[in-house]
Computed example of a mutant assay.
Amino acid sequence: MTATKKTCPICKKPRIEEHAPFCSQRCRDRDLAHWFGDSYAVPGRPAAPEEIASEVIRGEED
């Protein structure tokens, strides 16, 4: 059986345990920037503005 080495999802270099599943802090930061910049999205229906507002109000009450 041949073991396949998993690679960094950003640059495809071999992963490093310290930064798993990435190869470096740089790739970790690039991935985080993609989330902040809306490059990634979780599939689902778009939220109505009223739903977002009710979540904000509920969060402030806690």
Rank of each mutant, 00 (worst) to 15 (best):
E51C: 11
R15T: 01
I16C: 12
A3Q: 14
E61M: 02
F36R: 15
L32D: 12
C23E: 02
T7M: 10
S39C: 12
P14F: 04
W35P: 08
A20L: 12
A47D: 11
A41N: 05
C23D: 04
C11D: 08
E55F: 05
C8G: 00
E60C: 06
I52M: 02
P9E: 06
E51I: 09
T4Y: 15
A53M: 06
D31P: 08
K5P: 14
K5S: 09
I57R: 13
V42K: 07
C27I: 00
T7W: 01
C27M: 03
Y40M: 06
E55V: 09
D29N: 11
F22T: 00
C8T: 00
P43D: 07
G37I: 04
E17L: 12
D29F: 04
G59K: 13
P9N: 01
A47Y: 15
R28W: 05
G44N: 06
Q25D: 06
T4S: 13
C27H: 00
D31S: 08
C8W: 07
Q25H: 06
T7N: 05
Q25N: 02
D62K: 13
L32H: 14
K13Q: 04
P46L: 07
I52L: 05
E18W: 01
E51N: 07
C27F: 08
P49C: 02
